[in-house]
Design a protein around this nucleic acid. Structure first.
Lengths: 220, 220
DNA sequence: AAATATGATGACTGGGCGGTCATTCTTACT
DNA sequence: AGTAAGAATGACCGCCCAGTCATCATATTT
């Protein structure tokens, strides 16, 4: 947990701080991210950071939690029962993701990078936890679709959920490969990734994924 | 390129060296991998390494090339025309992968880890190159399946190839998630990953993937 | 105006790293 | 046995890092 001092800070100072560190952690691995480099760029003393946070991990963890929480608040009002099938629901979830990305690109990019960070045991642990949560959620949803007879019954919901989550996670790569979006550049410049071209690129990618998965999952 | 000195080394010494570094690079990122730590474990002087290689990258690159080359030699005699459909062919490719994994677990694990290394621009570059090669190969193959009327025609082969390659790349994760294989542990202990349970686990994963992709890709 | 509390500072510590190189040791050939 | 070439060594360099802390600056309360 950050120290009280951090929360006493003037809001614009706090935001500048967070932005700078979001950038650093979006473009480097946790180990390579350098507090020294960031404070230099910000023009403040390194000691200050340690008035706000216990250590590097405390800072990182705060960023992670904060971003996840905000993102969650975007997604949580999207409900399956408001859509006539799973795929429209899924599409709507993505659309919220785009909104989050447009409004808070740095945070969105940070989370995006986090999911692709896997080396160093600590980061891998974060990834595994995140994946597990996503898997549980989608496994449950898919089991429901199976139950109501929309999805095939000859495969474990968990396996289907895995395929879905994996492709979802890697959708940035998909955009890079099939649609020439330079994600690495966007991470470094702080531009929105998912919202590239007002989100149209992502939605096209999503629609192609749905075209594939629909056939793969639905009842024959 | 390694220096001549390296190739003059007694074979068992060279192999011990390679094994130790394969281990290090399988369990750490390139940046975090420590030459100092490995030489300490090997009980040799750090200077020696620099008699063999130009620098850290030279060493890494040699390992990468060497492993890729050997692995290629396993796969290259598997030909599409010897199988009656794409999926049997794909399965056979995996079976060669298992063989390689059983015979050279450290090398196999190194390549496995390499593909999951993405932060640090250099490693990302390697990954992108690798992915590009795999994509090109499968795009071509899929285009062929489309042409002979086995696969659907309403999706770009490149998109289908992407889905295939992504799931293929992440099959280790699939095993972890749906079959309780602790891959991280295996990396650290140097046990074969893909050949876990004589490869049966992997083949089951492959078969489940095929069950999904067959429907997704084939003509309606 | 004085006293107190809070925030800001940056020199410093200890540690790890990749990489160097003058020196010593080993081997093999004359 | 003597010599020359190749291999092995490890102290050392320069660099960068996370984290510390005594000191100073500023704001708030009395």
């Amino acid at each position: 947990m950050p120290k009280q001092t951090f929360f006493n800070l003037a809001e614009n100072k706090r935001e500048k701080l967070l932005k700078a560190f979001l950038m650093e952690f979006s473009t480097k691995s946790f180990e390579d991210a350098s507090i020294s480099a960031v404070v230099k760029k910000l023009g403040i003393a390194k000691g200050s950071i340690y008035q706000y946070f216990e250590d590097k991990m405390d800072l990182f963890f705060y960023l992670k939690q904060h971003c996840e929480q905000v993102k969650q608040s975007y997604a949580k009002h999207i409900k399956r029962e408001d859509y006539e099938d799973f795929w429209q629901f899924l599409r709507a979830l993505y659309q919220e993701g785009i909104k989050y990305d447009m409004e808070r690109p740095l945070e969105s990019n940070f989370l995006f990078a986090l999911v692709n960070q896997q080396h160093s045991p600590t980061m891998r642990q974060f990834y595994i936890e995140w994946q597990q949560k996503a898997l549980d959620m989608f496994t449950q949803m898919i089991a429901y679709e199976v139950k109501i007879g929309h999805f095939r019954q000859d495969l474990p919901p968990k396996s289907m959920a895995y395929v879905l989550v994996t492709l979802t996670t890697k959708i940035g790569d998909y955009m890079t490969v099939t649609m020439d979006v330079d994600i690495q550049k966007k991470l470094f410049s702080g531009e929105p990734i998912l919202a590239h071209n007002s989100g149209k690129t992502l939605l096209q990618a999503v629609d192609e994924h749905i075209m594939i998965l629909k056939r793969a999952f639905s009842k024959p």
